[in-house]
């Protein structure tokens, strides 16, 4: 039974209910020690049920092994014809010194057209979260399969890296002073690994970024900081600033999207900025970004009327965002 299965949550709820009823039934038939044990059981099982459901929504700990620090690396079976698949690798970064699992979506054409090199999107998760939020909660593989089959997207390799080695450390894809060097890992180590191990195109014109929530900020910030590596970025409910302390105060300057757009020359790349209109923080940040964009930077905005800061919003935004990205990335080409 996996940690993020709805059955696991249901079983825990049933255990909590059973423990509660048992406590009520046996109250006058057992001693204090028994009562204390049952009360503890009730409290723990209720907390466990709530925690499991929260974890299911965020995929902070995608497997039982992640709870004790041994991350899962399970590869999905080979897809049917016309279906891509998600393969898991451990990507060690010599520049950042970080080593983490990474999901890789390979489109169906990756195996049927061994002569081609493909464009790439690095898709970044939120905080708290994991690449499994994309694969398990947002159904990214099926989404990409559908868009590619319909011709709305070119066959594209999508990389699903972790943004942090410690689940509860929020890096916002920056190099934290005295902490994880997430920016280096994501913009240097991951691309270098992909170029070495996958048939992907090396040119910046073929590289894009996408992300929801914290990952949305990451996508915009990394693209603006590395326009020599990425040509387009899509932010789903991202913010204009990281909302953390990086350690060198750069959250107010170089790692602040609004500050960069106000004070630095804008690079010739393209941004897609989407939000739900009732998600006030992401809406205000995104609108501010859209207002600050000047040529040669371009921005496309996308709004859903309501849905908050939730998976339902990102489920609906994924296809438009990836379609847009694909229309801004260089095509698959013979190697």
């Amino acid at each position: 039974m996996s940690i993020d299965a709805s059955r696991t949550v249901v079983v825990t709820v049933v255990v909590a209910l059973a423990a509660t009823v048992t406590l009520a039934l046996l109250w006058y038939r057992i001693r204090w020690a028994g009562r204390a044990a049952l009360i503890t059981g009730v409290v723990l099982s209720v907390i466990a049920a709530a925690a499991l459901q929260v974890n299911r929504l965020t995929e902070t700990y995608p497997s039982w092994g992640d709870l004790v620090g041994s991350a899962s690396v399970a590869t999905s079976p080979a897809g049917k014809p016309g279906q891509g698949r998600v393969v898991w690798y451990v990507v060690s970064g010599p520049s950042s010194g970080m080593s983490m699992p990474m999901g890789v979506y390979l489109p169906a054409a990756y195996s049927s057209r061994p002569d081609l090199r493909f464009p790439v999107v690095e898709a970044l998760h939120g905080y708290p979260g994991a690449p499994q939020t994309w694969t398990e909660r947002l159904g990214i593989a099926a989404n990409l399969d559908r868009e590619i089959a319909a011709g709305r997207m070119a066959p594209t390799v999508v990389l699903l890296p972790y943004l942090t080695p410690q689940r509860l450390v929020d890096t916002e894809c920056t190099n934290l002073t005295g902490g994880p060097q997430a920016e280096t890992y994501l913009t240097r180590d991951v691309p270098a690994w992909a170029l070495e191990h996958l048939r992907v195109r090396p040119e910046p014109a073929a590289w894009g970024l996408a992300g929801f929530s914290a990952g949305g900020f990451c996508a915009m910030n990394l693209a603006l900081r590395h326009p020599d590596r990425y040509t387009a970025a899509a932010s789903l409910s991202g913010y204009a600033d990281p909302g953390i302390k990086v350690g060198d105060h750069s959250e107010r300057t170089g790692n602040n999207v609004a500050w960069r757009l106000t004070h630095l020359p804008q690079p010739p790349i393209a941004l897609w900025v989407g939000w739900a209109d009732d998600d006030h923080a992401a809406r205000d940040g995104s609108r501010r970004i859209a207002r600050l964009v000047r040529a040669p930077l371009t921005v496309t905005t996308a709004v859903v009327p309501h849905g908050g800061h939730s998976l339902a919003v990102w489920r609906q935004m994924s296809a438009p965002a990836f379609d847009w990205l694909s229309a801004h990335l260089a095509r698959p080409l013979p190697a």
Binding site: P119, G151, E203, A205, W324
Partner: peptide, 26 residues
């Protein structure tokens, strides 16, 4: 104008022909 030097280089930078995308209100 951001211009490239060769036609082949330009083609390499462009996306393939695609069908109309999913769009959200902007």
């Amino acid at each position: 104008l951001h211009a490239l030097r060769s036609f082949d280089e330009a083609v390499r930078e462009l996306p393939p022909p695609l069908t109309a995308p999913h769009r959200l209100p902007s």
